[in-house]
Amino acid sequence: MAESHAGANRRDFIQVASTTMGVVGAACVAWPLIDQMNPAADTLALLTTEFDISGVEEGMSVTIVWRGKPVFVRHRTEKEVEEARSVDLDDLPDPEVDADRTTNPKFLVMVGVCTHLGCVPLGQKATDPKGEWGGWFCPCHGSHYDTSGRIRKGPAPSNLSVPPHEYISDTVIRIG
């Protein structure tokens, strides 16, 4: 500290400027080292799955794989659709109408991953517990989903997510 403390001198400026450049440089180097952890190109290439729903009878559920995750396809009964549609939105923790969750009201397609901490909820097999609203039940920490896959009770914060999907023919859907 050769010079007085009064005001910034040229040495202070050089110190601040070079420290700033050092930090910017370090951040630029750090980014590739962090971003390498993100999904690689070949992982991203597996983004769509096609599925023929004609074999899924009314009342049946099928689990398919999309991006390494289970996707539930349920061919709902009249009663299930009715239940899903007659709910008062005020009763839902994450309000969403059933019509917004399906393209074809008979077929509910959603990612079978609990929005709490990622377990696969039960309810796909006839013998599974389906929770208090007859949809799905996550055994990990007790989340109940209704026949539209909406969260009704338990720690999960939101409804089972509906993946982007479209009908590419009358019976084939493409997910992703």
Partner: peptide
């Protein structure tokens, strides 16, 4: 997603 290196726990996750 960054932790997994994919869209679920999978091979990239096991490696890291």
């Amino acid at each position: 997603t960054l932790l997994w290196g994919g869209f679920s726990v999978d091979n990239p996750t096991l490696n890291r």
